[in-house]
Nucleic acid binder design. Structure first.
Lengths: 190, 190
DNA sequence: GTCTATACGAAGATAGAC
DNA sequence: GTCTATCTTCGTATAGAC
């Protein structure tokens, strides 16, 4: 019933959603077919190398979305705290308030790990570098900024897992609220 | 070739290792058979309900190991900081210096999520309660102790993911070093 | 581009001999 | 308890018609 004419981008978005939800091995072609409304043959038309191509496309799509909507929030002339707040807001959107898994987590498990580890590592490093940059601009020492950027991505990923395990988005939302302080604070005192 | 006579516990340990490494869907019976050195029939002899039974056994095994070796470190009359340091040491062991995934992460993905979410939630809550208790004993306010316990498990889980994504255990080891401070510190200042 | 059909192996599971 | 054999369904992939 998703029927009719989905653009390729829309197809990839649905594939991405399936991978995030079911993982790489858990996303069978049947599920991907169902998720996109496309028959197997159509899927192979778009992605000649099958599942691996679909996963690559999903990675590329999430990369583009992140760059456009999330990372771009860090690139303005406003105060660091404001930018980080906007950044956190976009994270909240992307992670569906903390209940949607991160592809960087899901794809480090199982076969996908070996297939995409390098790519994932690059993404993670790039994100950390950007966040460290924001902290530095706010006057944080270079070394300390790198530490805090690492703490920030650790907090994002960890809060997603804990939220899923508890089936409650509390941990994620608390992380989001505290997010600017992770990078800028000398300690929010809470 | 692992051949001969593995005890049931040893069998379960190998099954657990496979699940942590390949995830639930990624751990096919073939892989589990190979990992244990047992044929399919033998696996079904030990685990009549197949893969789901194996996963339950793995969860139970990791629970027992954690209780015996990790959680027990929190239960002494020594200073909180000392206990947390020992706790962190055991975590390091369990997570193989940060390079072995956590079952709580892996089993929140895909089908395993629906099968074991409740169990996982209970474990996560129990762990947080214990850690919060240690912080309280050290004089941290009850509400703040709960927040810090949550931050602690978030840091554990997040650092594992970031370490895997970067293919470097740096993030995990830094988290371990800082672990007591997460619960006790008014801020380690770095 | 999408459909139907089909191939083929893998996955999960069971039966029965030993 | 383990082995061989078997069964069924599923997963991945391709061929060829429309």
């Amino acid at each position: 019933m998703p029927a009719a004419t989905l653009s390729r981008d829309q197809v990839v978005d649905r594939i991405l959603a399936a991978f995030r939800r079911y993982g790489y091995e858990g996303s069978s072609l049947s599920r991907l077919s169902e998720a996109t409304g496309l028959g197997r043959s159509s899927l192979y038309h778009y992605f000649p190398n099958g599942k691996e191509d679909m996963a690559s496309a999903a990675m590329a799509a999430v990369g583009a979305w992140f760059t456009q909507h999330v990372l771009s929030t860090l690139d303005s002339r406003e105060a660091s705290a404001i930018r980080l707040q906007r950044f956190a807001g976009k994270l909240t959107e992307y992670y569906a308030n903390g209940m949607a898994p991160c592809l960087m987590d899901v794809f480090t498990i199982g076969e996908a790990g070996s297939l995409f580890q390098q790519h994932l590592g690059g993404r993670m490093r790039a994100l950390m570098a950007l966040l460290a940059g924001v902290a530095e601009e706010a006057g944080v020492d270079k070394v300390e900024a790198a530490v805090r950027a690492e703490n920030a991505v650790v907090a994002i990923q960890g809060s997603l897992i804990v939220s899923r395990a508890l089936d409650s988005n509390g941990p994620f939302l608390r992380m989001i609220e505290n997010f600017p302080a992770i990078l800028l604070g000398p300690q929010p005192a809470k």
